[in-house]
Design a binder for these strands. Structure first.
Length: 803
RNA sequence: GCCUGAGUGGCGGAAUAGGUAGACGCACAGGACUUAAAAUCCUGCGAGUAUCAAAGCUCGUGUCGGUUCAAGUCCGACCUUAGGCACCA
């Protein structure tokens, strides 16, 4: 162990022994809750990317403590999940053990880097004491009608043998293994998240998420406002369609319905070409969602013969088609097709030789559809639309909707892309779903007092070929009695998705040891909310949405104090390899934080990761740059030799000192970590130019640097005989002292800098003007020209406009 | 296709409400100290042009226009690039 590591160890022990970072639930101080996403403890150990965001928020936590806040900065483990299970299958080690080992490694690494977590609140989502409450909350969802079983076509990964949520199957491939996803009918637990769509949208107003985060949420929820319209079928019956472009209703030349929807099943008895239709339905099922969403594959479909629909606006009979571009689970599962004004419909019409009727003028429908993106807001007018002809699109939209509403054949509705949350996984390494199936009573929830429902030890981790969880093989666990009638019953063998445990963990941190409730109302009221939550960009859509949904539900049943429990959400950029590529074993560009700590020390690693660039942006690793940060810390260390007694700041260092306090403080709170460090470098350089500095000067520099480099600063501070920085207060700057008396400003002639002048802060505009006009190079440049005006911006610039 | 970012030296990146573009750091070059190396210190470092040397001058923040006394910053069109969403009616 080198000298640096010894010093770092010394202070880490000091913090441990003194419980320096313990957050109190009964404090009179103002609360401040900083949260970094708890990691999945993978076998690879801590990534330098973790170090970046943890250091950033560690610095904020440390500063806030010094500013007198009771700071909660917790850490835990999101340890359920497929990777641990994959690892178990491969190596025949129980995930519990593998995860336990990984957690040990992560924790050791975090400690050597000196993060100021309150380790007394540590837990893992896999602890029965924790997942007991995850299960308990599931029961609340169930009891309030928010959890239900449904047989639905779901995304099925043939390799992982599991069902994937739409989110996990994004792009038609399994997020985990990249295998193409198939469609399979399965009975699944679902959470009625879609009923919270509007609330989740509105709730964003009660948060301080970064704009790009809010937009991510909004996009994911995917609200569209439109009209639902009834369509009569010739010879009886009707169905509904949803459209956002009711203004094009006169352009309907056919309807398209979803092959996986309910409507076609109802119509089946009347279909003339049953065989053809059934084949198409089967084909659609076989297609993975990859094929189905492939844009350039052409528009397949078959006509549903023997059934015609009536366009409600003009009574015209039009054909009905089956097309797999229409989704059974969005809107009504049926659409009106207006090929003149929708590219998708246009292509379908071309492929199947259907009429194209133009109803909005301004495009060239011979070539392609004239779509809403093209015509909206441009004053385009309707044609071929009876009494609506001549109206602008915007007028017609309203007038047609009104007319249809009056006739009671249409209503204004909203639709959301966000679906209900598929909550079942056919996996072993997850929270067991505390439900029991009884022949007599159906699905019955377990009694709350019987929780937790422990995950049994299994010998085989592989999912069964039928896609059931390995739990299904443990018959003495599966067979149980019905909590309702006492008869024989079977347990649910599916487990919860990985997102479950992470949807409420931030509440548990507020009261981590509570065995009466997931967290007490008092504790939640004291901490109020997560003041600042940081995580990866990849989690800003889903995890955040799930967590917000979970909280809103708990709020609605009176279990949490507010509807939104996360105030500010920011996300960090990735740390890339030095080749500007994502770090990966195969590319050989991975940096192990342990190596850096051993060679350069934790403080250097911390300073470097804060200095490397814009926190919200990706940044490549550079060992050279890291060395530069080591040099900076060495310089700070050497400054100790210049220290002389004195408990006041050196007079002429005062402006830069006060400026530095201000800049470091505001930059840290605005994610400007790199500029905060650069200010500290400037301050050190200013100290270095002096022959001597006072203890007060030095202590100030160390205090400002402490949040980022907590070990070395404590050591140096101790050496000059001051009490530990972690037990001291953050300095307060004096605004009036940040202003420098003398300043150099530029003098421009016609916007071009021609000279600089020194001005005094008290100089009047006249004095400055005069000074500027006396400059040699200014005189040269205005010679023989007429001065139109002289612009003086106090303390900034002089611009002389000449002709 | 839609929605977000981002384009600034050799490199990472600075530039609060438009006001000296390139802070701070890295790399590089020259010098000092040293028997030597490391460490440290000093100087230079956007391009071009001028000069014995300097001052100076011209150009320069992805491209083309515009607004302004003044544009990296504001407006309009576009290009490149990263990410998200995507047959969502």
């Amino acid at each position: 162990m080198n000298k640096i590591n010894e010093i770092e160890k010394k202070w880490q022990n000091y913090w441990d022994e003194h419980k320096t970072f313990k957050a109190l639930n009964d404090s009179k101080k103002k609360s401040f809750y900083v949260l970094v996403e708890f990691p999945y403890p993978s076998g690879a150990g801590l990534h330098v990317g973790h170090v970046r965001s943890y250091t950033a928020h560690d610095a904020i936590a440390r500063m806030k403590r010094m500013q007198g806040y009771n700071v909660l900065f917790p850490m835990g483990w999101d340890a359920f999940g497929a990777p641990a299970e994959e690892y178990a299958i491969k190596n025949h080690i129980h995930p519990k053990e593998a995860v336990g080992e990984n957690i040990k490694t992560f924790k050791r690494q975090m400690k050597t880097i000196g993060f100021s977590f309150d380790w007394d609140r540590e837990f893992s989502t896999t602890d029965p004491d924790y997942y007991k409450w995850t299960q308990w909350q599931f029961l609340q969802f169930y009891k309030h009608g928010m959890a239900y079983k449904d047989t639905i076509p779901v995304n099925w990964c043939p390799k992982c043998k599991t069902v994937l949520s739409n989110e996990d199957a994004a792009g038609g491939v399994c997020e985990r293994c990249g295998t193409e996803v198939e469609q399979k009918e399965k009975s699944q637990w679902m959470l009625k998240m879609s009923s919270y769509a509007e609330d989740l949208l509105n709730g964003l107003d009660d948060t301080d998420f970064a704009d790009r985060v809010k937009l991510g949420q909004i996009n994911w929820i995917g609200k569209s406002t439109g009209v639902e319209m009834d369509v009569e079928i010739v010879g009886g019956g009707s169905f509904q369609i949803f459209t956002t472009c009711i203004e094009t209703v006169f352009g309907i030349t056919f309807f398209v319905i979803a092959p996986d929807g309910k409507l076609i099943k109802e119509l089946m008895p009347r279909v003339e070409n049953k065989e053809e239709v059934l084949k198409y339905i089967e084909d659609t099922k076989k297609k993975s969602s990859m094929d189905r969403t492939e844009l350039n594959k052409g528009k397949t479909g078959v006509e549903v013969k023997g059934i015609k629909a009536i366009n409600p606006i003009n009574g015209k009979e039009v054909p009905i088609f089956l097309g797999d571009f229409v989704l059974g689970d969005y809107g009504t599962g049926a659409v009106m097709a207006v090929p003149a004004h929708d590219q998708r419909d246009w292509e379908y019409a071309k492929e199947h030789n259907l009429d194209i009727v133009e109803v909005i003028e301004g495009g060239n429908i011979e070539e392609k559809a004239f779509e809403k993106y093209d015509y909206l807001g441009k004053g385009c007018k309707l044609i071929n639309s009876n009494e609506f002809t001549g109206m602008t699109v915007e007028e017609a939209k309203e007038a047609i909707t009104k007319m249809l509403e009056e006739k009671k054949i249409a209503r204004r509705v909203n639709n959301y892309k966000m679906r209900d949350w598929i909550f079942s996984r056919q996996r072993f390494w997850g929270e067991p779903i505390p439900m029991v199936y009884c022949e007599h009573c159906g699905w019955v929830p377990m009694k709350e007092e019987d929780l937790p429902l422990l995950l049994p030890d299994v010998a085989e981790y592989e999912p069964t070929d039928t896609g059931e969880s390995p739990l299904a093989k443990i018959t003495d666990w599966v067979n149980t009695t019905c909590p309702n009638c006492g008869g024989p019953a079977k347990r649910e063998t599916d487990t919860m998705p990985n997102w479950a445990g992470s949807s409420w963990y931030f509440l548990r941190f507020m009261d981590a040891k509570n065995d009466k409730a997931f967290a007490s109302m008092d504790a939640m009221k004291y901490w109020k909310r997560v003041d600042w939550y940081n995580g990866g960009m990849e989690h800003t859509a889903r995890h955040l949405l799930y967590a917000r949904f979970w909280v809103q539900f708990l709020y609605n049943i009176g279990l949490v104090p507010s509807k939104e429990m996360i105030w500010k959400r920011v996300s960090h950029g990735m740390v890339l390899g030095s080749d500007n590529q994502k770090m990966s074993k195969s590319k050989g560009n991975v940096i192990n934080p342990d190596d850096i700590v051993n060679e350069y020390g934790a403080d250097t690693l911390r300073v470097y990761e804060m200095f490397m660039g814009d926190y919200t942006q990706d940044a490549p690793w550079s060992t050279d740059s890291l060395k530069g940060c080591k040099r900076f810390l060495d310089k700070v260390t050497r400054l100790k030799d210049k220290v002389v007694d004195g408990d006041e700041f050196t007079k002429d260092l005062e402006p830069i000192i006060h400026k530095s306090i201000k800049k470091v403080e505001t930059d840290l709170m605005n994610l400007g970590f790199n500029t905060a460090i650069s200010q500290l470098m400037i301050l050190s350089n200013a100290f270095d130019e002096k022959d001597t500095i006072t203890k007060a000067d030095y202590n100030l520099l160390l205090t400002l640097l402490n949040p980022v480099a907590p070990h070395i600063t404590e050591e140096l501070n101790e050496a000059i005989g001051y009490k530990p920085i972690c037990e001291s207060s953050w300095p307060v700057y004096d605004e009036s002292k940040t202003i420098e008396q003398e300043k150099e400003i530029a003098v421009q002639v016609n916007g071009k800098v021609r000279a600089t002048i020194k001005i005094n802060i008290d100089d009047s505009e006249e004095v400055i003007k005069e000074k500027a006009l006396q400059q040699e190079n200014v005189i040269k440049n205005i010679e023989g020209k007429e001065i139109v005006k002289v612009i003086v911006i106090q303390g900034r610039i002089v611009n002389i406009v000449v002709k």
